[in-house]
Computed example of a mutant assay.
Amino acid sequence: MKEKNIIRLSILIFWTFFWGLSVVDKIIPDVHYLWVGKDFFALFIKFFASLGLKNPIFATLALASITVLEVLNFVFYFLSLGSFFKSDEGLCEKWFFRAVFTSMTLFALFSIGDQVFGDRFQLLEHGLFWLVLIVSWVGFKYVDETKTTRISGSKGVKLAVVIGLVITMCASVSIREFSSKTFSNVDTSVNGVEVVDGVYKFDFPFLADKLVWEKTVNEFKAEHPELVVNYIYTGPGELNSKKKTHMLLYVFTSKVESQEAQELKLE
């Protein structure tokens, strides 16, 4: 296979999986075995609520529209990949251009949304993806075939492939073992530590989601009937940044007043 075809195939595989998995992330937003999804609906609810649009219909329509565009992107890249395997260069380029143009349009919409909702970090990320799409098109379309050579199956290439497969297998086994040891965090409640009188700290691991958060608070209230939860405070970003995969949660409580104390107050 020539270098030009290798570059084209790599670009097509990357973007096909990129948009395919992005669609899966919209369909499966929860945490499952070997899959950690993101709750985009809750995120969109938060974004639109910040604009004063608290009706869930706005978030639903926006998320549905984005999902449709992402499915369209995936289909275009998949068709381009299929044309590549059929050695139909003209049709492959045609579908790839449509895919890139649709992707650029979607990232442009994302960037506008980032500015409206005030998410500057995502604005930078989506802007970089927009530029990467241009680079992908240039690399796909304008790599000079006359300057490329056919990669032969030499001993060095075969050795590199074998080493790559061994490293991949070792990494896969390691990831599998790590996942089997940590996946219990998906539904295991977190034990709190009283750091100050009436203030409890909960250190949530990476896989813990909103269900774990609710379960933890409910179990804490059941285990401490003598306490009243006044409010819950998320640890500041400066503290959370020290543990990139953790979240700190502080629960402020007070003692439940006895019946006699309540009667004295009423008197």
Results as ranks from 00 to 15, higher is better:
S174T: 07
F129V: 15
W35Q: 04
F76N: 06
F110W: 04
G237C: 10
K265G: 10
F202P: 01
F121V: 02
S152I: 15
F101W: 11
K255D: 07
F110V: 00
K243R: 14
M247H: 02
S184C: 03
T182I: 03
F14N: 05
T67E: 12
V116Y: 05
S50W: 02
S258P: 10
R120C: 01
A261E: 10
D119P: 01
S180R: 00
S172N: 09
F76D: 09
F47C: 03
S111H: 01
F202E: 00
S87D: 10
S22D: 05
A208W: 02
V229I: 13
L72N: 08
I167C: 08
A99S: 12
M104T: 10
W137H: 06
V36C: 10
G82D: 10
I7V: 12
C92V: 02
K244R: 14
N73Q: 14
L34W: 11
V116K: 01
L165K: 09
I11F: 00
V196W: 08
I232D: 12
L264C: 06
H246P: 09
M1H: 13
V229S: 05
K141E: 12
E70Y: 06
K4H: 06
D197N: 15
E226H: 10
V132P: 02
S154K: 08
S179Y: 00
F41C: 14
V251W: 06
F101Q: 12
W95I: 03
S189E: 00
I27Q: 07
L61C: 05
S254W: 03
F47W: 03
D39V: 03
G164W: 13
D209W: 02
F117S: 05
K4I: 13
R8C: 01
G164V: 12
V190D: 00
P29Y: 01
L81T: 01
E226K: 05
K46E: 11
G118S: 07
F97V: 12
T216N: 08
S174H: 07
A108Y: 13
L69W: 11
V75G: 00
Q259G: 04
S103Y: 05
M247F: 09
F74Y: 13
V100L: 02
G113I: 04
L131K: 08
T245N: 11
N230D: 15
E125V: 14
Y250G: 04
D187C: 02
W130I: 08
F17V: 11
E177R: 02
L123C: 00
D39N: 15
E145D: 12
F41S: 03
I27S: 11
L248R: 07
D30I: 06
T60N: 09
P56G: 04
Q122H: 03
V166N: 03
E214M: 14
Q259Y: 08
V100R: 06
N5R: 09
E226N: 11
E145Q: 10
F206A: 06
K86Y: 01
N240A: 06
E194L: 09
S103R: 11
L61K: 14
S80M: 08
